[in-house]
Design a protein around this nucleic acid. Structure first.
Lengths: 205, 205
DNA sequence: TTAGGAAATCTAACGACGTTAGGAACGGGT
DNA sequence: ACCCGTTCCTAACGTCGTTAGATTTCCTAA
């Protein structure tokens, strides 16, 4: 009986080592170097061993995506300690773009259309929840009633992603992109505050 | 002498047929089906013939990206016929997102980090110029002086891309995304109009 | 009219990829 | 001491991008 638990522990351990190796390769050498054989070599196994822990490469990559979102979430939580609501918003926006700059290859995989859309949305949910919470306290602090809360949240999320992509797609530097993100959010939020509150926009499903 | 011109014409013709076949495969079956052998089969040649017209697959893909931007540009020009500046802005925003929805695979390749960053920026330039022109007339129409014009333009471009990505990454439907894009732009522009004109923001390089 | 040579095209192959099959080695329970 | 399940490896399959070399096609020029 005790041996089986030990074996399970060892299994989980090598599984974790595979993920770590994959993450290391991805972050240091990019997505093109992320190969089953390469990862197996790094953990000193033969390639088929990987398939004892992951159904296929996509499943392994999904694990990296989940790791990336956990990492992003932890940095968001650090930025969310800022007490002032407006400053907190700016810091989170800045942090999102910074993440894209500091982990470009990871960020790329986290938003790769090749990974399953449902799975991606699933692992991204906790991060988006932080954004929702942020928007909730913001709208409460400024007495703004948003016509469609989820919609507003998606606008923020999409905007952050777009401007972060500006950076890692090579058009603008990362520090510049951070500033752009802050300014874009500032403009959007200012726009929402300025809207006539009685303005009943259609919810559009 | 006349035969050589005919041969050149034939060369250019098959080159064009290759591009068309590649485009057809990409749009109808997605990036995974975009294979040299597949394209060659479609134009009834063997695979190596493709390499007489393109240095490698990336060069061929770049041609598709360029085509995509030309297509987007033409649709922008149609939307730009709207005389009212604000409505024109909304229509262009909407058109951008619509394009992503109607040509998802093409849009994906147009923003694929794998294609060379410089080349991508180069072929995207004419489209961005439309945006610049739009922003110029908008700021003139509303008597707004932007602290940094290029920066403002990049914010718009990034925002549109981000919200369009929301759509084709699967989170929200395309018509919804079009509405989100319009609203995001509206909010951003409203924010810029509301800013105190004397507010000298740092240009930040 | 025909010999020669460039251009065009094909078949075959290379190396790398994701993935699977089949067998060897190991290790605890009877 | 045997046995069986797990673990692991070698070898292979099919596909990919890409290249080499042979072969065919077709214009030119004697």
């Amino acid at each position: 009986m005790s041996t089986s638990t030990r074996r399970a522990r060892e299994r989980a351990n090598t599984r974790e080592r595979i993920i770590e190796a994959a993450l290391r390769v991805l972050e240091t050498e990019g997505v093109a170097a992320l190969t089953i054989r390469r990862i197996a070599t790094d953990v000193e196994y033969s390639a088929p061993v990987v398939y004892q822990h992951f159904a296929n490469k996509d499943a392994l990559v999904l694990e990296l995506v989940a790791h990336g979102h956990r990492l992003m979430l932890s940095e968001f939580r650090r930025a969310a300690q800022e007490p002032d609501t407006d400053r907190r918003t700016m810091r989170i926006a800045s942090q999102y773009v910074r993440f894209a700059g500091e982990h470009p290859h990871l960020f790329q995989v986290m938003n790769d259309p090749m990974v399953d859309a449902d799975e991606r949305r699933r692992v991204a949910e906790p991060v988006i929840d932080v954004l929702k919470e942020l928007l909730t306290t913001w709208s409460a602090a400024h007495d703004v009633v948003l016509a469609d809360f989820d919609q507003a949240c998606e606008i923020l999320w999409g905007t952050l992603y777009g401007i972060a992509s500006l950076s890692y797609l090579g058009s603008v530097g990362n520090d510049r992109a951070r500033y752009l993100a802050e300014q874009a959010l500032r403009a959007i939020l200012l726009g929402w505050r300025t809207e006539t509150p009685a303005n009943g926009r259609p919810a559009s499903s």
